[in-house]
Design a binder for these strands. Structure first.
Length: 344
DNA sequence: AACACGGGGCC
DNA sequence: GGCCCAGTGTT
């Protein structure tokens, strides 16, 4: 616990946001909120949290759900492995823990999708266990307060910051301490425009002392973005059926649905063939650029009218109006919303 | 240790 | 256009 820790507590009690998962002690709700908020801002995750607690009010109902229903509810939030792991962990709680949520850091770590951060968060918030959370906010706050230049995305940095975070942890109220540190990072000690003038610990911040706040935290590696050219095919037959497929295996959007797709190394002006079948009368419907964290997708949506839907392995025919019943990537949602072929 | 994994908001 | 977000799992 650092000297003048009370300044952060006082600030937190005055300025904390009123968030629904802060007023509960049920570990299921806290765990659910933490999974949703991984790499996700509160404003984006909040509506999903409300949907999930309404649809799955307890771990038993979540464990009993179909994975596809969970993915559908997760649609649009991204990092879909979180939804798959969420569902898997709920079943783990039922089978491995007799339906009772694990009540300590080490047991929580055994759940799919629960790493060091989430185990510390749930164990400290729900059970008062003295484990410090180390998330993006904590990295930033600590690196500035103590002017620590070790890259936060290195193994050494993770170790160093975790040790420091646990050293300054207020063991008498670890949950409040953890929330206060994160809230300070989210509302005041922000990445680009830190509000140092209103910061409660401005007086003990080493970076503020020499105006180097923006030099922290230090990160190494910049990620490389891969450019891909995707050509989606809308096979539309006379009965208004289309072909879709479930994305399997590893890669983006695992478990979600999209259309038959031809990937090319460069942009193309026509699509003449699909899986060995020669195509005629393929028309370009829509062209979009879709940005993901690691990929820049240059996408063309092509339409092909046929009398009958082709029988192709791995694809299923559905009425075009049923498309929205399936969990879809935002790219496909975007197309469905913009293309005239999906208007009633 | 390096990399894959979404989507949205801010500057 | 780059960076970041209540990170985790895989290789």
């Amino acid at each position: 616990m650092i000297d003048k820790q009370y300044l952060i507590f006082d600030w937190y009690s005055e300025n904390k946001r009123n968030l629904p998962w802060r007023s509960v002690k049920d570990p299921y709700y806290i765990w659910l909120s933490e999974i949703i908020l991984q790499q996700t801002k509160v404003d984006q995750g909040l509506p999903y949290y409300l949907k999930f607690i309404k649809c799955y009010p307890n771990v038993k109902s979540l464990a009993a759900a179909d994975l596809e229903s969970v993915l559908k509810l997760w649609q649009g939030l991204g990092y879909y492995s979180r939804a798959r792991n969420l569902h898997s962990a709920a079943k783990q709680v039922m089978t491995d823990f007799g339906g009772v949520f694990p009540d300590n850091y080490d047991s929580l770590l055994s759940l799919k999708g629960v790493g060091e951060y989430t185990a510390a968060a749930v164990s400290s918030f729900a059970y008062g266990e003295a484990k410090a959370v180390v998330d993006g906010n904590v990295f930033r706050v600590l690196s500035r307060l103590f002017k620590i230049a070790t890259p936060i995305n290195s193994t050494k940095g993770k170790k160093e910051f975790t040790i420091l975070a646990n050293e300054i942890l207020d063991k008498s109220q670890p949950g409040e301490h953890n929330q206060a540190m994160m809230e300070l990072g989210a509302l005041v000690c922000k990445p680009k425009s830190p509000q140092c003038e209103i910061c409660p610990v401005q007086g003990i911040c080493l970076a503020f002392a020499d105006k180097t706040q923006l030099d922290y935290p230090v990160k190494e590696k910049k990620l490389k973005v891969k450019v891909r050219h995707l050509n989606y095919l809308l096979f539309l037959d006379q009965n208004n059926n289309i072909l879709i497929r479930k994305r399997e295996g590893q890669g983006i959007w695992e478990g979600l649905y999209d259309f038959p797709c031809v990937e090319t190394s460069e942009s193309v002006d026509e699509v003449k063939e699909f899986e060995g079948v020669t195509l005629k009368n393929v028309f370009l419907d829509l062209e979009v650029k879709h940005i993901l964290t690691h990929q820049k997708l240059m996408v063309k949506f092509w339409v092909h009218h046929k009398k009958d839907t082709p029988k192709t392995n791995g694809y299923m025919a559905i009425p075009i109006g049923d498309i929205s019943n399936f969990p879809l990537p935002q790219l496909i949602v975007r197309y469905v919303n913009e293309s005239s072929f999906f208007k009633r």
